[in-house]
Design a protein around this nucleic acid. Structure first.
Lengths: 343, 343
DNA sequence: AGGTTGGATGGGAGCGTTCCCAAATCGCTG
DNA sequence: CAGCGATTTGGGAACGCTCCCATCCAACCT
């Protein structure tokens, strides 16, 4: 007895049922689903109709079981400690990334991995084929995770140039050096001649590159006073650095800060010191974060195409997935100076 | 010939191999893996040793195929249009959420779903058992997605009170009303008597609740001038609203803005109008975002426990996963007024 | 002592795919 | 019109697991 006879009813149509409906074999139905070309136009249509009629959707688990692929990629946010993410950044990257992925059948898995234990879990996920590839956003360029994953045989792609680049891992980054150079040159062109910079930390490529961009812009220029103070990308460090710079050279007339929060900090220090911005001192930040359009005065800042960076990141991974031994060059995306009020 | 005989070698040990190693049957090995209690201590140990020795990890696809569970939950960020996320929010929620999830075996899937087409995809994912449950961050409280998902039979949990709450969907939210009330009361206690508010949009519960908190704080108080201007949570709207308020009552001495960007906008308008903050006018924002600690003056703001909200969100879903007909009450988390310079 | 109970175990069946090989069919060519 | 390669098709086997039922054995009851 018992109706159709099919055991534990799940409601979902299977490939088998599609095949019956279309009067073909399971094999042929499978070929249609997977876009194989050796299917007669007639069968193709029949199967397609059946699929539509039944509302068939492939069972991911079953497919994954036999193909040994998971059709899932992992985004690892590898933070150390409690350091908070520079904000619009994260969301914006994810948006781009998920946009790019939506044109594929890939699922996006997300994991925060701060502790070594969690790093292990990521590696395990990879080794066990739970994910086909990994994208990494890491705050520190010297994170060992990418290399480990690569060793585990998984395609990897990074946001941000690894500081100790073995050249092995493809990454996407903004053109930090050019951005910094453009900002500094702009200050120079505005007639500023005592131009300071507040740098980021030395263990991040972004910090290093922005500093060398500043240097490059001023290289060979005569009659320009250069001043460098160190920060850590955070607002407090920017404020402190600004005070320090002001003490060193009370007459400085411009600052390029390697991050928006530091620029915001600088703004505060300048305000406290009675300097008017931009009249007395011009200030430029980096990131064009939400902050930049909310300070007073509004912050002129170097913007990075974060969303595009996300897209490219995904693209980098997808390419490797399709062709495992494609060797990919880093993707460096241009930045843009967004003029507001502070410079 | 051909070595061990096992076909397409994958390197990964299977449950069968564990069973052989432990000298038990596949069934028993499975029972150990799944924590069934009807296993003899002897077998238990043998299997555990074998698992360790072989480095066995269950194959997710195979398990999922038979259990019809995916052990995956989905986080849907349901944005309409290009509206940017109120920022630290997203990252922080995700952090809490992934923290909570890491104590389970659940994977986190992420999807941005702005278009109706993408919404459909989410529903499909659910219907096809690709995910066991869905968490939703939606910018607008009247998003129909949660109801649809519920109808599709999936556990759902929300961040943010749905504005048209059928009462059916469990959610977690900050105590917006209390937060707003506390902020407003604080202004009153500081001796302010002409207290304005800049509200959020009417289609978000957060906007509504913060307004009613403001009203509640001033209810019954004599000698207090109330002023309400409308904003949309964005900085520009805050600036405009502030100008409008200033025109209406040049002598106002305090503003509670329902978001930090609006507060930042207000700060600008006040500055432009020659008012000193907090001396002439006190300003309080809401969210305690990165912004708040970067404006000039630093913004006093109502902070929400975003990370905890993320944890609770996950918890809400996990509870439903474990007990499908558990009926859950909304979780409302307390806010806290963070005093800085602006009030 | 025989029967009974209940915990522990073994292993077959089946989950829904893809892969692959053998079989069927078709269209030409000589 | 036989023959042959090319195209299309059918369906068995396998992927690694859980579920379930039958079996086994020891302890326990009357």
């Amino acid at each position: 007895m018992a109706g159709k006879g099919r055991s534990r009813a799940s409601g979902r149509p299977t490939l088998e049922q599609v095949a019956v409906e279309a009067n073909v074999s399971r094999g042929t139905a499978s070929r249609v689903v997977n876009g194989s070309l050796e299917v007669s136009p007639y069968a193709l249509k029949a199967v397609r109709d059946a699929i539509r009629k039944l509302g068939y959707v492939p069972n991911h688990a079953a497919r994954s079981l036999v193909t040994r692929r998971s059709d899932t990629v992992l985004l690892v946010v590898s933070e150390t400690e409690d350091r908070v993410f520079s904000e619009p950044f994260f969301a914006s990257i994810v948006r781009g990334l998920s946009q790019e992925l939506s044109s594929t059948t890939l699922q996006l898995n997300l994991m925060m991995a701060s502790t070594p234990r969690q790093h292990d879990r990521v590696e395990q996920l990879v080794r066990n084929g739970h994910v086909d590839g990994v994208m990494l956003i890491s705050l520190h360029g010297d994170d060992p995770l990418p290399q480990n994953l690569l060793a585990a045989g998984a395609p990897v792609a990074l946001i941000g140039r690894p500081v100790a680049d073995g050249g092995a891992v493809p990454y996407v980054d903004a053109d930090n050096e050019s951005g910094a150079r453009a900002a500094t040159e702009y200050l120079y062109q505005q007639g500023r001649r005592r131009i300071a910079t507040i740098t980021g930390p030395r263990d991040m490529a972004a910090g290093l590159d922005r500093l060398s961009g500043y240097r490059a812009a001023l290289r060979g220029k005569r009659g320009v006073t250069r001043l460098v103070a160190r920060g850590d990308f955070g607002q407090a460090s920017g404020e402190a650095a600004m005070r320090e710079l002001l003490a060193k050279d009370p007459k400085l007339d411009a600052v390029f800060a390697a991050s928006d929060p530091m620029a915001a900090g600088a703004l505060r220090a300048l305000w406290a010191a009675g300097r008017r911005v931009p009249d007395d001192v011009a200030v430029i930040g980096f990131d064009d974060s939400e902050l930049a359009s909310n300070t007073n005065p509004l912050l002129t800042s170097v913007s990075q195409p974060t969303q595009r960076m996300g897209r490219k990141l995904a693209e980098l991974l997808v390419t490797q997935l399709r062709d495992p031994d494609a060797k990919l060059a880093p993707v460096i995306l241009p930045t843009e100076l967004v003029r507001r009020e502070s410079a």
